[in-house]
């Protein structure tokens, strides 16, 4: 089976300097112009949220901002769509549990 090349080679990409973001505290590399979801995929990470009811892992699904499965907590702010939000140097993405608003709960 013939293997061509990577997507970046295919389009002749010469990206600006890569930078670091973190996922649950671990550093990963992102390229400027990539969405957070793309950067996470590139690092082999497919899930960055657990569901509200079943606690199941989820990540990007529709890839274009419609399904809201890729919701992540970014720099402390929950429910950001990782497939739309561009990665910025130093962004801290954390696995979002459920609705991401546990801090607001009253008893």
């Amino acid at each position: 089976m013939a293997r061509d090349r990577s997507p970046a080679e295919l389009v002749g990409a010469a990206p600006d300097a890569a930078f670091e973001i973190t996922f649950d505290g671990r550093p990963i590399t992102a390229l400027p112009g990539q969405s957070l979801a793309a950067a996470l995929w590139a690092a082999g990470i497919l899930a960055w949220r657990t569901t509200r009811v079943g606690g199941r892992p989820r990540g990007a699904f529709c890839g274009i901002g419609h399904c809201f499965d890729c919701l992540a907590t970014v720099n402390g702010e929950p429910n950001r769509r990782a497939c739309l939000v561009p990665a910025r140097p130093g962004d801290a993405v954390t696995t979002q549990e459920g609705h991401g608003h546990d801090d607001l709960a009253v008893r």
Partner: peptide, 29 residues
Amino acid sequence: PGVVGAGGAQAMLKSGLVVPGIGVSSVRA
């Protein structure tokens, strides 16, 4: 995780230059 929309995979490839389930950034530049 790893089940993605076909259009979503296409979109992520076209704009982010990534493919689901490939474990490493494929940018060689």
